[in-house]
Design a protein around this nucleic acid. Sequence first.
DNA 1: ATAAAGTGTGACTCCAGCTCACATGTTTGT
DNA 2: ACAAACATGTGAGCTGGAGTCACACTTTAT
Lengths: 297, 297
Amino acid sequence: MSQDMPPLSALRAFEATARLGSVTAAAGELHVTHGAVSRQLRSLDEHFGTPLFTKAGRGIRLTHQGEQLQRGVGDAFSRLRESCAELKRSSEEGPFVLNCPGSLLARWFIPRLERLHRELPDIRLQVGDSDSELDPRHSEAGATLLFSEPPYPAELGVIELAPENICAVARPDQAERFDSQDPATIFTRPLLHTRSRPQAWPQWAQAHGLDEARLAQAVEAGQGFDHLYYLIEGALAGLGVAIAPRLLVKDDLASGRLIAPWGSVETSGRLCLLLPHYVSHRRGEQLAAWLQRELNP
Amino acid sequence: MSQDMPPLSALRAFEATARLGSVTAAAGELHVTHGAVSRQLRSLDEHFGTPLFTKAGRGIRLTHQGEQLQRGVGDAFSRLRESCAELKRSSEEGPFVLNCPGSLLARWFIPRLERLHRELPDIRLQVGDSDSELDPRHSEAGATLLFSEPPYPAELGVIELAPENICAVARPDQAERFDSQDPATIFTRPLLHTRSRPQAWPQWAQAHGLDEARLAQAVEAGQGFDHLYYLIEGALAGLGVAIAPRLLVKDDLASGRLIAPWGSVETSGRLCLLLPHYVSHRRGEQLAAWLQRELNP
DNA sequence: ATAAAGTGTGACTCCAGCTCACATGTTTGT
DNA sequence: ACAAACATGTGAGCTGGAGTCACACTTTAT
């Protein structure tokens, strides 16, 4: 690759000067003084070993070599400007991609999407399932919604939206088995679980002062699922007691499709919105604000 | 004109990284550290508000937006490189334009061109008459050969090649009218002159201690010419005595076509080669050295 | 396990490129 | 003929953007 390119800033100065036919005008466009442009042009002359402009009256005029250079360089800069403008536009007006775990997407976000679109019509959100790419650093998304807990990696812009409350839920037809004053009555039913959150049940047991060994036994007896989403479906199907973030079963509790006999426990986890440093501020913050409102009425 | 272009150096870093698929490789090509490239890329992410690369394994991969940008930017940079290389080539290998006054060109340079081409075969000199554009700042030439005198404008690279000697010349058939011991015998013939060098005769008269008034009268009597070249032709035609730089009549004196009864007078003028600051050193200095040799044997 | 390769980033440094002020040359209006 | 406005070139001096260095972290290979 030919490695003797002149400084790019000098080429930009040349392009503007050649296009506008004036050093001063170019300086205006580039928001620098005419002296700065004049130096850049001189450095180009030296680089190419040939004059690009000559004086003409009180202004300047392209030399033959200058015209030759102008053809290619003018094209190249148009192309550059066009590409950058296009990307900028598609980044500002194109869909804003928000990734979040499938369970959160299905059980909390999708039911609220219509309201989101109504209240933030210009955000053109595109939601995606992030279970395949757990690490937001590998994702192309503009933002990621997920449960996490401190300490957060410093390079990610983490906004804590709400504390995570987990609760044990079951179908209402099993209500009589459970005593809301006695957490141990939970052991009358199998404990549904998922491999992706092995600490969920132990955490709950500790908060309610239950014996870990007996808990492990009950977990053993319950069905395992690959995914939190299916876990909750298991509870709805009456297979046993599921453990889930309160957020995901909020609507089911309100409608009476599920019950949470022992309330919910706040964990050290938080529902977080990850806005990478580079993300467009306007839309990212609009979204964060909307989520805050929606989560903390 | 859309004025929110990212820094060009960042775009160059992006282009190299996208093309080579590696930050480190791009850093190598740009002769900087990988850290420098990494920062540039980050600044681009921030400018566009969208990620251009994601991590992939231990390397990186273009995102969708990155690919979009790469198409245009890659093209633009190819174009830029191509244009610059083309101009550089035509400036280094193309003809080297030397301008000089028509009289010098015709009466001194052209007879020596063949030797120049033989001794400096790769210089591909193109000589032009500069009488229309006297000021080298308005010319497109790579170099200018001309008579000038100090002080020289600072911004021009002036190389003094030889002192200017002027002499009064006439046709040999008029030799008996002139006494080489008595300059006043010059007034036996009309004094040919040119408007472009009104000070030539007075200078000569002063050097030989002649009366200015009588000189003015003799000049009045002589034919005037537009151009030094025709002035010498006038002397060759026997119209009177011409005044000219010794260099221009050197060959005619040697061959006996002209005589210079009173020798020559050194003036404060110098034959100079003007090499603008930007000119390719190699060829400019080769030419200067050859001229030095040719003028001062 | 251990090494090697690749990328990201905090802290610091430095010089490329800018501004300022002035000089010089050109055009235009009166 | 003169002055004023316009345009570019340049010496001196300053500053912030861009680079280096060193280290951390992750992934791949041996």
